[in-house]
Every structure is written in C-alpha cells, then in structure tokens.
Nucleic acid binder design. Structure first.
Length: 483
RNA sequence: CGGGGCGUGGCGCAGCUUGGUAGCGCGCUUGGUUUGGGACCAAGAGGUCGCAGGUUCGAAUCCUGUCGCCCCGACCA
C-alpha cells in the first residue's frame, strides 16, 4: 500500500501491521458492535445487526425451502437434561452458565442457560414422535446461546451469540445422513452465493467433532491473514440422543425403534468471516447481497447548484429504491464529500454514486466501486439497469478474489519440515496426508498449532501417501491454524 | 488459567520518574465562510484521573488491595 493511499484511512490499523487490531478497529469504527459491560458480551449495533438480518432472511428462506419449520424452545435447560448424554455434557460442562436462584428462592434444580439446544429439544421431540408418520420432524430455531468463553473476540467468539440451530428426527440412518449432508450443502451454497465466501466442505476428525455427534461435517473458510475459520457445522447425531431422550417410534413393520437425529447451525460468527475474508486497509468490503446499504448516494453540494443537485439525488435514490435496492442518500451538509467517501468506504458500501454539478451537466452520475475503486460515468437513462449489474459484478468479483486468494494460500507440503515452514511464512491451508490416527493429529497440533480442519469431500481417493507425522499410508486432509 | 499491555472529558494520548490550580489533538456545541477524496476561522461546553483503602499540609503522580478491558497462548461456533 502506498503512502498516498494510506492517507485515506486515519482510523484503521493496516492489516500488515496488526491484523487483530485491524479487525477490532473495523468492528468498532464501522459501528457494527460495541463492548457491553459484561465480559465477552457485546451490543450488536444497527449496522452490524442489519447484516445479521440479511443473513437471517436469505438463509431462513433456504431452510424453509428444504422443508423445515421454525419454532422456539426454552432458554433454560434443567441441569439433569443436559447431563443425559455423556459426551455432550463433558463437552459443554466447562462453559455453561448456571442459574441457581429465581427471585428470592434457591432453585431445587439448577438451570443451565442453553449452550446449544439438543437436550431440551430432544426432550420435547420424545413427546412428539410416536409413529413413523411423525417423521421426519424438521425444525429450526433462531435464538441466542451462551457459552462461558475465556478468550473472546467480537463476532468470532463471544459469551453470548446469535445463531440458528436445526434439529431433525428421522426414521432411518440413511435419511439422517442425507439430511446432515443436505444442510451442509445449503450452508455452502449460501456462503458462496450470498456472502461471497468460498468454503471447503468436509468431515471433522474424531477429535474435532461435536460433543455427542456420530459424525460432524463442516465448511471451512480462509481468512485474509491465512487462518481458517469454521463457518458452519452439520452433525449426524446417530441414535445417541434418541436413546438417552427416548425418541422412539413405531415403524411400518410394527417394531418400536429409536429414531436418528441431526443438528446443524451457523452463527453471528459469519459476520466475522465477512469482515476477515473481504476487508482491506480501508475497511469493510461487503458483498452487495448482504450489505445493509448497497448504494450510497453522495451529492456534491455547491453553493450555486445546491437545490438542483439535491433534487436530482433524491430522484435517483427513489428510482433505485423503487427497484428494490437498499439505498442511503447522504445529504448531510455538515460533512464534506471527501469525508463521506472515506466513511462509506470504511463501512464497506459496495457502490457509491456521486452527483455534482458536472454530473448534472453531462446528464448522469459518477459510480465508484468499493471492490476495485473503479470509477465510471452512468448516463441517467442507464442507471436502473446498470446499477444492479454493477452490484452483481461486485458480488462476483468479491467471490472470485476470495477464491483466488484461497488457491494462492493452499499448499501441498512435501514433508513435515516444509509444512512447518509454510505455517510460519504463509499460513493458509495445507493439504497433506494423514494416517487417521488421533495421536499424529495431536502431536502436529502441539508442535505447530495447526489442526485438521476437515477431511474434504472433494479429494482423490487414489491420492495416498505417507502420513505427515508417522509416514504410514494416509489420505489427504486440510490443515490450518484456525480461529 | 498462564504470559504481556492498558485504565486520565465521547475517542486517541501526554502528565507520574522528582507529589503543589488537569493538558494536547480529534470529536462535540454556536456563528460564519466552504463542499468533486477526511475544509477553514472564531467563540464555547465537557474530566470526583477505573474503584477502595493508606502515606502526606497536599495524591492522576507514592504504597497496598481490588475490578475491568485488550493482545498472545491452552479450551471452544
């Protein structure tokens, strides 16, 4: 980045200088969140929440299109319910918040504030499922969950966060497995098409899977600093929960059988992913599909042309709102145009339209893309057709850039030494052979801080080679340092 | 839970070593001139210096304790 360019940004620490600080500058200064007076908790401010609402809207549609219905379950879970599934309780016990008192009375049974809702939902499902005719049961809920985290970061890991969790019940193992993979596919399509974030779908290792799951699947994304982020998970819970919560049904063959359950979720962490995948030293770069403001109109107000410029700006704002775009008309006269340019660029607005005396004369507007900085002139009559096209191009470009970045940052180390060198110098994804033994996985993590992000679906089963650590024959998996 | 750093107007900081009327920049308010990449002039408002003790004639400054936040690790969406 040139010094010249640096002058545009006075509020954001450059990524190269300190990526963590860059991230914190962004979330605070774009007014996405603010720290709340509870450790690890944040207020999500309107600009950040608007992104979440867009995510909710676009994902909820997909969840419903795949046959699920929304419902709501209690925030509190009796401690005994959470403890029913052994692995599950072991996984979550260290991070649950407990309510021990209600009003002035001590509770006879402590209540857990849900860290996830398998327990309470399965408890209800046991009542609702009697017959094969009740299946599949396909329910999703949007809610908050609480996990008492020690190391928190805005959006990436907070003590309380917002998410959706789908919980389904099926009569056969095959159907549960199919559901698990289907929803992972929904997540992948959603992230790639709406958030412009390319992901690698795959399976988690035994060590990394969800507490209580038979199998966990994940989509993994690569952040601009070369660290991986688990962006969504989908779990095949087998019959673990059905058995402890007694979710049984009478099948067509008259037999009473335990059901098969799944669960899957994505969280406000996706907002962190958006920031770290697309952002640059000027601030956010939001994909148009989820940007709270898709187009900002900045009138260039001068003394002589003030009224004409404002009038034309309003007309164009209305015209674009009329075709369903999210438009902000920044007609504040107490800020200079230059200040507004920087401000809205920091906030990641994909497209800016400038309307000044010169544009009035030439009968159009000046359009400036956030992703490339490219300026173009749009004649008035072309605005309603060109603006959506530009937005689509920006959406595509963001995805393409992220994909190219990931390709550039995906390595195939030939041995463990090169693996370690790449982790120090480039980070990124490392595709390497692994024998399948947890011991090797743990040793590698202890020595390099890299974990197995997933066993990718998309791999050549013929591509076998010596395990990175023990040299026994293994298959290709993705390693990375992760958030 | 370890290691490091920081708490002083809304934000960023100086002042602390060597105790003596709390300061700077940005922002904010009012008025005016401006407006095509963070405008300028003038006049203002705003702080029990994280909190609690202690030492002292006197504490932002010294001592003790405590709380909070941030960063880096171990555990996790």
């Amino acid at each position: 980045m040139s010094n010249n360019e640096k002058d545009f940004v006075k509020e954001v620490t450059p990524q190269a200088e300190d990526f963590s600080q860059w991230y914190l500058d962004i979330v605070l200064k774009t007014e996405m969140m603010d720290y709340a007076p509870i450790k690890g908790c944040m207020a999500i401010r309107p600009y950040g929440y608007a992104i979440w609402e867009n995510i909710q809207h676009l994902l909820d549609r997909r969840i419903k299109e795949t046959g699920h219905k929304n419902a709501y379950f209690p925030l509190f879970i009796p401690e005994s319910l959470l403890q029913k599934e052994a692995e599950h309780v072991e996984g979550f016990a260290p991070e649950v918040a407990l309510v021990t008192q209600g009003g002035n009375e001590k509770l006879s049974e402590k209540l857990v504030v849900r860290p996830t809702s398998e327990a309470i939902i399965c408890e209800m499902y046991a009542r609702w499922v009697q017959s094969w005719r009740d299946l599949p049961l396909l329910i999703n809920q949007w809610c908050n969950v609480v996990r008492w985290e020690k190391n928190t970061r805005p959006f990436l890991r907070t003590s309380e966060f917002l998410w959706q969790e789908g919980h389904t019940v099926h009569s056969t193992e095959e159907e549960a497995q199919e559901e698990t993979l289907k929803m992972l596919g929904v997540y992948q399509e959603f992230l790639e098409n709406e958030l412009a974030i390319p992901v690698i779908p795959g399976q988690k290792t035994e060590k990394e899977k969800f507490a209580g799951a038979l199998k966990t699947y994940t989509i993994e994304a690569l952040m601009a600093d070369g660290k991986a982020l688990q962006a969504g998970t989908s779990h095949n819970l087998g019959q673990h929960f059905a058995k402890v919560f007694e979710i049984k049904f009478q099948d067509k063959d008259d037999e009473l059988k335990y059901a098969w359950t799944t669960s899957w979720g994505v969280s406000t962490r996706l907002i962190g992913a958006l920031i770290m995948v697309h952002g640059d030293d000027r601030g956010l770069k939001l994909p148009p599909r989820v940007a709270p403001v898709q187009v900002v109109i900045v009138p260039i107000i001068t003394k002589k042309k003030r009224d004409e410029v404002l009038l034309r700006s309003k007309e164009i704002a209305e015209e674009l709102r009329g075709i369903g775009l999210r438009i902000e008309l920044d007609d504040r006269e107490e800020y200079s145009p230059g200040w507004k340019f920087n401000q809205w660029e920091m906030k990641g607005v994909p497209l800016r339209l400038e309307i000044g005396p010169r544009d009035l004369e030439s009968g159009g507007v000046t359009a400036v893309r956030r992703d490339t900085g490219e300026k173009s002139f749009l004649p008035s009559e072309s605005i309603p057709s060109q603006v959506p096209l530009l937005l689509q191009e920006i959406q595509d470009t963001l995805f393409r850039q992220a994909l190219e970045f990931r390709k550039r940052k995906t390595f195939r180390p030939v041995d463990y030494n090169e693996f370690k060198r790449i982790l120090e110098e480039d980070r990124g994804f490392l595709l390497a052979h692994w024998c399948g033994n947890s011991r090797c996985e743990e040793e590698i993590k202890a020595e390099t801080k890299a974990t197995i992000r997933c066993i990718p679906f998309d791999r050549d089963p013929e591509d076998k080679g010596p395990c990175l650590y023990c040299q026994k024959e293994g298959q290709l998996v993705y390693f990375a340092r992760a958030y």
